[in-house]
C-alpha cells in the first residue's frame, strides 16, 4: 500500500479464545481458539456450512460469541470501532452490488469513508484512492458502472476499495466465486504482493489447492477447529479428511 510496509506491532491481530456461537439451538462455531499474528496470510478452509463465515463475522465483531472471547487488535471485537484498520469483502458482495448505479471510482472511494464520513477528501485520501485503482489496474474503468463489469473486474473493484482504506487487516470471504481462472490467478498474485507489504489477510476459499499454495497459515474448521498450522503440515496430516468426514487429497495445480 503506497509502497510502504505496515508497521509491525507485537499484539495479535485477532485472538479467538474458546469461542462458541449457535443459531437458535444449532451450534455453528464450537469452542474454537486461534491467534492470527500481524502479517499472516491465513487460509480458512472447511466444508460448506462448517462455520467459516460465522467465525470471520465473530472475528470482525459483526456477531458476539455465545461464550468465549474474540479480540480484534487487542480490543473486544464487538466493541472495536477503528473501522479504518479493517477491510472486508463479504461473500457474494460483488453480486450484492447488483444493478446499483455506482461507478468504479465511487465504489473504491467508499474505502476512504471510515477516514472521512463528512467533508472534503484530503490530498492523502485522493492519493490512496488513485493508488488503489492503479494497483488493481482499474484506472481505465473509473467511470464505468460496477454492475457493467465482468466478475473478475468487479472483484478488483472490491479489492481496490479495501486497498483505498489502507487497512491493516483484509478479510475476503470466497472472493473468486464466479471469476474466470486467469483473473483468479492474477487476483491471488495481487493478494500475495499485498501480504508482502505487511497487510494481514484472512481468506476463506473452497479451492484448498490454491489456499495451500498462497497462504502462510491454514485454519481448518468444521464447527470445531481441526487444524491450525502451516500449509505443508496441513497437507501431510489427516485434518482435511477429518473435517470433511471423507478421504481427501490436496491437488496442487496452476490455473
Amino acid at each position: 500500500m503506497n509502497g510502504t510496509t505496515v508497521e509491525t506491532v507485537s499484539e495479535a491481530v485477532v485472538t479467538v479464545e474458546n469461542a462458541s456461537f449457535a443459531f437458535a439451538d444449532r451450534p455453528v462455531v464450537d469452542d474454537v481458539s486461534l491467534e492470527i499474528e500481524p502479517g499472516a496470510f491465513l487460509g480458512l478452509v472447511g466444508p460448506n456450512g462448517s462455520g467459516k463465515t460465522t467465525l470471520v463475522e465473530l472475528m470482525l465483531g459483526l456477531r458476539r460469541p455465545d461464550s468465549g472471547a474474540v479480540r480484534l487488535f487487542g480490543e473486544p471485537a464487538h466493541a472495536f470501532d477503528d473501522g479504518e484498520r479493517v477491510a472486508y469483502v463479504a461473500q457474494h458482495a460483488t453480486k450484492a452490488a447488483g444493478r446499483m448505479p455506482v461507478t468504479v471510482r465511487e465504489a473504491v472511494t467508499m474505502g476512504r469513508y471510515p477516514h472521512r464520513l463528512v467533508g472534503r477528501f484530503s490530498e492523502t485520501d485522493r492519493r490512496a484512492i488513485d493508488n488503489a485503482l492503479e494497483r488493481v489496474d482499474l484506472t481505465e474503468l473509473i467511470d464505468r458502472r460496477v454492475s457493467r463489469l465482468s466478475g473478475g473486474q468487479r472483484q478488483r473493484v472490491f479489492i481496490a476499495r479495501a486497498l483505498a482504506a489502507e487497512a491493516d487487516l483484509l478479510v475476503l470471504d470466497e472472493p473468486t466465486v464466479g471469476v474466470d481462472a486467469e483473473s483468479r490467478e492474477a487476483f491471488y498474485d495481487l493478494l500475495h504482493d499485498l501480504n508482502a507489504t505487511g497487510i494481514t489477510i484472512i481468506l476463506i476459499e473452497h479451492d484448498i489447492g490454491v489456499v495451500t499454495n498462497h497462504a502462510t497459515e491454514i485454519v481448518c474448521i468444521n464447527r470445531e477447529l481441526y487444524f491450525d498450522g502451516d500449509p505443508e503440515t496441513f497437507v501431510e496430516t489427516n485434518a482435511l479428511a477429518d473435517a470433511y468426514g471423507a478421504e481427501q487429497a490436496v491437488l496442487e495445480h496452476d490455473h
Binding site: A87, Y88, A90, M110, Y113, L117
Partner: peptide, 22 residues
C-alpha cells in the same frame, strides 16, 4: 447531504460498511 457517504456505503454493501465501523 451530511449523511450521504454512510448512507451510500450502507446501501451499496451493508456488511462491509458495518465491518468498517459504520
Amino acid at each position: 447531504a451530511v449523511a450521504y457517504r454512510p448512507l451510500l456505503y450502507v446501501t451499496f454493501d451493508a456488511t462491509a460498511a458495518r465491518a468498517a465501523g459504520i
